[in-house]
Computed example of a mutant assay.
Amino acid sequence: MFVGSAFVSVGLEIFLVPNNIIDGGIVGISIILSHLSKLPLGIFLVLLNLPFLIIGYKQIGKTFALSTLFSVIVMSIGTTLLHPVPPLTIDPLLAAVFGGIIVGVGVGLVIRSGGSLDGTEIVAIVCNKKSPFSVGEIVMFFNLFILGSAGFVFGWDHAMYSLIAYYIAFKLIDVVLEGLDQSKSVWIISENNQSLGDAIVNRLGRGITYLHGEGGFGGNKRVIFCVITRLEEAKLKAIVEEIDPFAFLAIGNIHDVKGGRFKKKDIH
């Protein structure tokens, strides 16, 4: 959490803030208020997050709230210490790209450690329990409003750079949370299911499960189910193409895998 919060501080003060580029959530609101009031960014990061931390303490749990408080304080101190440091670039596009990367990695590390850096996420979790919208949809609504506000404060060019930084940070958070070897679920329907199953076991080193399926147009089907990593996807497709080019193949992302014989490090 400390390293992640420090990363976010660097991304903000060395790249985004000096170029009038904001991030989403409370951080984005804090950057706007700091610009308008000329007060230090760290003050707003703490003050604006406090009400949401209280909500998080009551609704989510003590450990999460304290972890988030620690992360926010480290981030606030970091932005204060780094404020006098000159930016590495004054090119807004470079600032948006590299600032987004560093902020995304930092936020991902904090979330992976059980904390948070943004009060809007806490609100989204609480609202999710009482609304039909997902946490991601609620956070996206908040952030679109905040990023749109940047257009009136910094100009629409900077608002669009902010959107680039936010998107890059969003994708990097996923990479940190799920890793480059993100798990994928695979369903295969083939007339040569036995040959395909044997090939996946012997050549890919993955366990498989045969499922019974009933076709909508009649006839029983034998479905092969297995879990692979992202790095094994190309090899699996090559195996299917080689044995049965007409097989039905469906591949989907999985957030997490536990139990069984699956190990992400078993990459051949």
Rank of each mutant, 00 (worst) to 15 (best):
V257R: 10
I239A: 06
A250G: 05
N253D: 08
E242T: 03
A250I: 02
P245Y: 12
A247I: 09
V227L: 02
V227Q: 04
R230T: 09
R230S: 12
D256T: 14
D256P: 01
H255D: 07
I254F: 10
N253Q: 15
I228Q: 08
N253P: 13
E242S: 12
F246P: 00
N253T: 05
H255K: 09
E241K: 11
V240A: 02
I243S: 08
I254K: 12
E241W: 04
E242K: 14
I228G: 00
G252S: 15
P245G: 00
I243L: 15
A238D: 11
L249A: 09
H255M: 13
A234Q: 07
K237T: 09
H255R: 13
A247W: 06
V227P: 08
N253C: 12
K235R: 14
V227G: 04
L249H: 01
V257W: 10
I243A: 03
V257P: 07
P245A: 06
E232V: 02
L236R: 03
K235Y: 13
I251M: 00
I254Q: 15
D244N: 09
A238I: 11
A234P: 01
V240G: 02
L236P: 03
T229D: 03
E232N: 04
G252I: 13
E232I: 01
I228Y: 04
L236Y: 08
V227Y: 01
V240W: 05
F246Y: 11
F248D: 00
R230H: 14
G252L: 12
E233T: 10
A238R: 14
T229F: 04
I239T: 00
R230I: 00
E242H: 11
E241M: 07
E241Q: 11
D256F: 04
I251D: 07
A234I: 15
V257T: 13
V240R: 00
V240N: 00
I251L: 09
A234S: 15
I239Y: 02
E232Q: 09
E232K: 02
A250W: 04
T229L: 04
L236S: 07
K235Q: 12
G252K: 12
N253E: 14
F248G: 02
V240T: 07
V240K: 01
A250N: 05
V257F: 11
I228H: 03
L249N: 08
A238M: 06
F246G: 07
L231A: 07
A247R: 11
F246Q: 12
V227H: 02
L236V: 13
I228F: 01
I239G: 03
I254R: 15
N253H: 15
L231C: 09
T229Q: 06
P245M: 09
L231D: 07
E241A: 14
I251W: 05
A247G: 02
F246H: 09
N253G: 08
E233G: 02
K237G: 01
F246C: 07
I228S: 09
R230Y: 12
K235E: 15
D244M: 04
D256Q: 14
R230M: 11
D244H: 13
L231Y: 10
V227D: 07
I243P: 06
F248L: 06
H255Y: 12
F246W: 15
I254H: 11
I254L: 15
L249T: 01
V227N: 00
K235S: 08
F246N: 14
I243M: 11
F248H: 05
V257C: 05
K235H: 08
T229P: 01
